[in-house]
Design a protein around this nucleic acid. Sequence first.
RNA 1: AGGGGCGUAGCUCAACGGUAGAGUCGCGGUCUCCAAAACCGUCGGUUGCAUGUUCGAAUCGUGUCGCCCCUG
Length: 303
Amino acid sequence: MPRKVLVICGATASGKTGLAVDCALKFNTEIISADSQLIYKGLNIGTAKPTAEEMRGVKHHLIDIVNPTDTFSVSDYAEKALPVLEKLLSKGKIPIICGGTGFYINSLLFEFGYGNTAANERVREKYAEFLEKYGKDALFDKLREVDPETAEVLHPNDTKRVIRALEIFEVSGKKKSEQSDKLIPKYDFVAVAVDYPREELYARINARVDEMFKLGLVEEVETLLNRGIDENCQCMQAIGYKEVVLGLKNGDLRSTMSDIIKQNTRHYAKRQLTFFKKTPNLIWLEPKNATADKIAGILNETY
RNA sequence: AGGGGCGUAGCUCAACGGUAGAGUCGCGGUCUCCAAAACCGUCGGUUGCAUGUUCGAAUCGUGUCGCCCCUG
C-alpha cells in the first residue's frame, strides 16, 4: 500500500502557504510545517507565520511548539513531526509537508543516520573551547587524526561541522564517514516547488519585507527583547530579527534595516533553491501551474 | 571668481614611480542533530579624460571635465 505524502517546498516568499492550504482543503488533510522558525511562539511577523485567516481552518502542525528561549534542532523536529505524519497516513490521509527548511523536510522523507549519535553538549563545549584556545587548524588536525575521510570533505573553516564530526567519533566511537549519506525514501512522496523567475522572486521578497515593517516587525522584536529574551537566542538569529536587534542598537533607520533584511532574505532564498535542487524528483511548477488542481493531477498520474 | 581637496571594481576604500589589491555586492556551490544557521568558490577595473616627463605613471607636471570644502 503506497504511503503517499505531498511536499510543498521552495524558496521563501514563493507562495507555499497558500498553495498548501488550497491542497489541504481539496484533499481533506492537514499540514505539517517544515520550518525552523515557525516553531517559535511569539515570532510571527518576521517569520511570515500563517495567520488563523490564512490557515482557513486547516490544521497546521509543528507551529508554535517551543518558546523563544528554547533550542531546537532537526532531530527534535523529526521526533515531533514523524508521529504526526504517521498518524495522518494511518487515517488514510495524504499528509502535506510544507516549508522552506529543506533539512527538516529531508529528515522526514528519508532514512537518516543522525539518530545514531545524539548531540552532546559537554563534548561540543569541550571542542569549542579547544577551538578558542588553539584555533581552527589545530581543531581540524584532530579530525584528520580520527576521521581523515570526513576531514577530506570538510573545510577547516567549517568549524561547526568539524566539531560535529569529532563529536560523533567521541560519543559513538564511529566515524562520521561510516554513516550513509544516501537519501533513501521512506514514503511515496511527491514534491513540488513554485519556480519563480529570480527577479520576480526577489520582488516578492522585497514586497513581503516591506509588509513586515508595516505589520510591526520592529515592535515585535522590541516586545521579545522587553520580555527578556536574549538577543543571542537561537530564534533571534532568524532573518528579520537579528537585523532589527542590531539596527535598534545602532539607532539605524528602518529603511536601513529593511534593506539588510531584504538582502539576507535573497541570500537565503538562493541557498534554499540550491538545496532543493538536490531533492529527488522535485517538480518545479511554473507559478501559473501552482494550483491544487494541477497538484491533484500530478498525484493521480504518479500513483 | 580665488585658494584647497578629491576622482581607482556596482559600492566603500588600498596600492615607497615598477604593467592595480581588499571588503562588500552580484553569481555559483556545500550541507545527515544550531540549517532563516554554518561554510566554500567565482566574476569584476583601458585607475574621470587628454597630454607631458620617465626605461617604466594610479602615483610626478600641465591642461580639461566633474564633485566637495574654505574665502569673498
